[in-house]
Design a protein around this nucleic acid. Structure first.
Lengths: 336, 336
DNA sequence: TTGTACGCGTTATCAC
DNA sequence: GTGATAACGCGTACAA
């Protein structure tokens, strides 16, 4: 079976292709009978309108791009879940782009998306807070973008974030109240907007309790699992922290493994709390205290904000910057 | 800035649009100088070739669809990871379709994809092993499909699976050797190919050890978290199993929670082992024994098999049905 | 109600 | 080396 197109159907029915075309569009007036004949034959022939021809004509793709730094992270896969759900409801589809934390790829992706391939983008940024000037040249009329989580502060785009500063402050405060004095902050890239904000919360909490800030306790980790094991083990042995705030979920997991291996007990020797949206954090040994970000809802919100723009509506002021509430869930890993 | 197209560039440079077009294609012969002028202006104007026009012309989209039953599952998000990596390497992109375990949606997706929107599909099936006749009408010349994990047995398509029967057998055997006599099998849909195969392994292992098969111990769970809690709690209290084989990761998690709540101890009272590709299964309390499926590799393999077809190569016989090895990882949850 | 003719933005095949 | 021109498949004024 060769691909069937509108013309073939037209020929077979001895009508013009415009009539056939009309049969598939709801509104147009067309004789119900001919319409039926057309639809019947179309079904028989297994006709599918050519996606690219339609889109070329319509200048719409009903597709949105989700640009993420990585996939090996619960948080981002939950984002996809949320975004996919909302998108599907409105007949949109999801195209995934993973930058591997590489701003160059991010730029290439966004550039190429300006080709009209997608109707809009939701993105969690990969770059440091600088070096995103490339976004200046994007025409947001043609390609609306919504940022979430890892945002670029100084770009005027709708943003969905969590109350990172507040959460970080509270988590640190909680560790202090559990008796910690040497609290380490584990982060992957402290120059990213998100690492920075959380760092600020951490620092301010220390300040409030008059605990000196020690630079050595701010531990810059890497994206490599193996490297992190070394970095974290070294940090624990050299800096002897009695509390850890992990700004990324998997740094907490690595810490668990390291502690298991070197015989450090959680929470007796070290208490730990992490930013994480893992549902089963409570099943860990010991149960992991977390700042639980509402990842799925963030994904939903980002998508629905984008879709609202795509539908032509103006965003209200309070939709331009949305803060979602995280929960502080205390479990055994940080008990005093 | 309005969208710039090839014609605009042509006008501005007083040349024809065909020349401009040539500047962007590698091979064509064109005066290096004009080419340079064109590229320079294109950059200035931020020109991006229209994706749909190109695709319409080329009949290629450099995009593959990933059709999945659900996203709320480590296994499938790892599949995406693997597929995305391979696809990206070859300049392909990933379009995500989630069927929510609904065969109707699956059918609609596949149908609509026949529009040429994607160059190929990798899919884990949602339907029961029957009722997939819709696939018969697909022209695989135009839309190659690779099945993985949850396959349709009787369709002639490339398939990537894990050694589910073998793994299930070994896992059950392990429970028996750990002293279990009343082993329950937790499954979500035992009519799906995958649930069936695993069930077979379970049954055969029981047979080998002359343990009677009790229908009540085969527990059909649901997709709802709340319902599962009830189902599982009831099963544990009524059927008093001393061992559990969970064919789906999250049934093990629910079991952990239920046991925690009703005071049943793992592994003293009940031993458990689950199909799961969760990296941190070892951090659970107690460490969860698993059949670890190489999810990322399966995703990679499915994608690379598809891409091979797309490149025009014939698949070898042994590429039409690939079995990937799962590992049996024994931890405390099933220790005797 | 239906058909004609053109445009969407590219690429490819010709001529020149 | 470059420029017309015809596809690709669909949707839609406009005319009939």
């Amino acid at each position: 079976m060769a691909k069937v197109d509108i013309i073939q159907i037209a020929k077979e029915l001895n009508i013009s292709k415009s009539t056939v075309s009309r049969a598939f569009r709801d509104s147009s007036d067309i004789n119900p009978k001919t319409k039926e004949r057309i639809l019947k034959l179309a079904k028989e022939l297994n006709y599918q309108p050519n996606y690219y021809a339609s889109n070329l004509k319509e200048q719409k793709s009903k597709t949105i791009a989700v640009v993420l730094p990585e996939l090996a992270n619960n948080y981002f896969t939950q984002i996809i879940q949320g975004a996919e759900r909302v998108a599907k409801e409105q007949g949109y589809h999801i195209l995934i782009f993973v930058t591997d934390d590489d701003i160059t790829k991010e730029r290439e992706f966004i550039r190429s998306l300006a080709s009209g391939r997608v109707d809009g983008v939701i993105m969690s940024a990969s770059g440091e807070s600088t070096d995103h000037s490339y976004l200046e040249s994007i025409n947001y009329e043609h390609l609306p973008i919504v940022l979430f989580d890892r945002i670029y502060d100084d770009i005027e785009l709708p943003k969905i974030v969590t109350d990172d500063y507040q959460s970080s402050f509270m988590a640190t405060e909680h560790l202090i109240q559990s008796g910690c004095q040497r609290i380490a902050y584990f982060v992957i890239n402290k120059d990213l907007s998100i690492g920075k904000t959380r760092l600020q919360g951490y620092e301010d909490a220390l300040k409030k309790y008059k605990i000196p800030l020690r630079k050595r306790l701010i531990v810059d980790c890497s994206n490599s699992y193996e490297e992190n094991n070394v970095i974290i083990e070294t940090a624990i042995e050299k800096q002897k922290p009695d509390g850890i705030l992990a700004s990324v979920e998997r740094l907490a997991f690595s810490t668990y493994y390291v502690c298991q291996r070197i015989g450090v007990k959680i929470p007796e020797d070290i208490k730990i709390i992490a930013f994480s949206s893992l549902e089963i954090a409570g099943l860990l040994q010991p149960g992991l205290s977390v700042v639980r970000q509402p990842a799925i809802q963030i994904g939903e919100k980002a998508a629905s904000t984008l879709l609202k723009q795509l539908s032509g509506e103006e965003l209200l002021d309070d939709e331009m910057f949305v803060t979602m509430q995280s929960d502080l869930v205390i479990r055994d890993s940080s008990k005093g």
